[in-house]
Amino acid sequence: MQKVKGAADWLTKWFTLIVIVWAAINYFVPSLSLWGKSSTGYMLSIVLFGMGLTLSLDDFARIFKQPLMVIVGTIAHYVIMPLIAVLLCWIFQLDGPLAVGVILVGCCPSGTSSNVMSFLSRGDVALDVSIGILSTLLAPVMIPLLMQLLAAQYVDIPWQSLFITALKVVLVPVVLGVACHMIFKEKIAKVTVVLPIVSQVAILLIIGVVVAVNNAKLFSPETLLAIPVVILHNLSGYALGYGFSKLMYRLYPKGFRYSQQKAITFEVGMQDSGLGATLALTSFAATPIAAIPSTFFSVWHNISGSVLSAWWRRHDDKYGIPADAENGRAVKAAAPTTV
């Protein structure tokens, strides 16, 4: 088990680099992953089933213990990221499937990577997990609803397909995972050690499929425009998520303290891009180019999240800001005494 944990830690540490290398390999040898085009839904279901296995009733109870912060954080996620996506499509004049792909990744729930980034930055991981759970459970309803409202101007939105697919690959696996956790209890601990490896391998397979399917168009003049859009989308999410949490601190200082501000920043800015790619390949199968923004997002938000969490930690250490600080203010040194 120790070797498995070590392998999981190694994979997590180097995951972003591995994603880039794996994407490059599939770009030059697309036959490696083309076989999985029809199986991305199953791959993502494995990831979310694993997520369910790690959850207990206590995790859901946290949502009710701090409902205001969880609900407000979830609303912020589902308002800020979709609207930024629409704005960026307008600014960069994106159209058709590419615009749909940008909006689709903006309508997805928060990504599981945000939990890791929140932990590394000394944020409120419990709040991060709670918002992630709620946004994921709402995904089968929120994604088709938001897509119909925001993306119908570009293509006809198959909202029924989006709803059914999200229900099958998101809600059902999570519920089954939670049920297994409740039934087998302590025995699940032996399995959860392997889950990080399984989840990350599944995400790599999905990325490989998207790159392979879009091999000819991945770096065309049209799709290259998605790279700055994705970067701005993610960074704007961080900025507005943090600004929103600072505003909420003024309204409710007991709840939206420094560690909660960090958690909401990551929860707003980081998306479940694996789900976005899967939905694009299934519900918009005729135009697989719609999955490209999710693929770019998957690589980029792991890079930006790692940089931001490391900077936040160094910043707090430099200025002596404790993890439980009220609002991120540096601890003032005592004034020197005069004799």
Results as ranks from 00 to 15, higher is better:
209 V>M: 08
69 M>I: 11
196 P>D: 12
130 S>V: 12
155 V>S: 08
158 P>F: 07
94 L>G: 12
245 S>G: 02
32 L>E: 05
140 P>G: 05
242 Y>H: 15
244 F>D: 02
116 V>L: 14
93 Q>Y: 06
330 A>V: 08
79 V>P: 06
56 S>N: 07
118 S>Y: 10
5 K>R: 12
226 A>W: 06
2 Q>H: 13
294 S>Y: 06
165 T>C: 05
166 A>R: 03
134 L>W: 03
16 T>K: 11
284 F>R: 00
68 L>K: 13
320 G>K: 01
62 R>M: 14
209 V>F: 03
119 F>K: 14
133 I>N: 00
82 P>Y: 07
118 S>P: 13
67 P>T: 05
102 V>C: 05
69 M>K: 09
218 L>R: 02
250 R>L: 15
67 P>I: 05
82 P>C: 11
134 L>H: 00
331 V>G: 14
156 D>C: 02
258 Y>W: 12
319 Y>W: 12
207 I>C: 09
96 G>V: 01
189 A>K: 10
196 P>M: 11
238 Y>G: 00
16 T>Q: 08
106 G>L: 08
276 G>Y: 10
236 S>W: 08
204 L>I: 07
247 L>A: 12
214 N>R: 04
272 D>M: 14
234 N>A: 02
78 Y>D: 01
179 A>E: 09
136 T>D: 11
129 V>W: 10
100 V>D: 00
292 I>W: 05
194 V>R: 04
191 V>P: 01
141 V>Y: 10
161 S>R: 05
151 A>S: 03
102 V>E: 06
202 A>V: 04
100 V>K: 00
145 L>V: 02
94 L>Q: 13
268 V>S: 12
24 A>E: 06
4 V>S: 10
248 M>A: 09
100 V>T: 04
188 I>M: 04
215 N>C: 15
323 A>V: 14
156 D>H: 07
6 G>I: 04
183 I>C: 10
285 A>I: 10
283 S>P: 15
8 A>Y: 10
119 F>I: 05
12 T>C: 13
154 Y>Q: 07
176 L>W: 05
270 M>G: 10
253 P>H: 12
301 H>L: 09
76 A>G: 06
9 D>G: 15
97 P>F: 01
86 V>F: 04
16 T>W: 06
321 I>Y: 01
96 G>Y: 07
213 V>P: 09
179 A>T: 14
94 L>A: 08
199 S>V: 05
141 V>G: 13
68 L>I: 15
263 A>Y: 07
310 A>I: 13
24 A>F: 04
185 K>D: 08
195 L>A: 13
241 G>I: 02
338 T>K: 15
178 V>Q: 08
124 D>N: 14
235 L>F: 11
267 E>W: 09
334 A>K: 15
152 A>P: 01
41 G>K: 01
265 T>I: 03
250 R>F: 15
21 V>K: 11
219 F>H: 02
297 F>T: 06
99 A>L: 03
145 L>T: 00
25 I>V: 14
236 S>C: 04
170 V>Q: 03
103 I>N: 01
124 D>W: 05
183 I>H: 08
255 G>S: 07
280 A>V: 01
296 F>I: 15
148 Q>D: 04
318 K>G: 14
10 W>H: 14
76 A>M: 09
313 R>W: 10
91 I>G: 06
4 V>A: 12
177 G>R: 06
257 R>E: 07
111 G>S: 06
257 R>A: 02
207 I>Y: 06
238 Y>T: 02
78 Y>W: 07
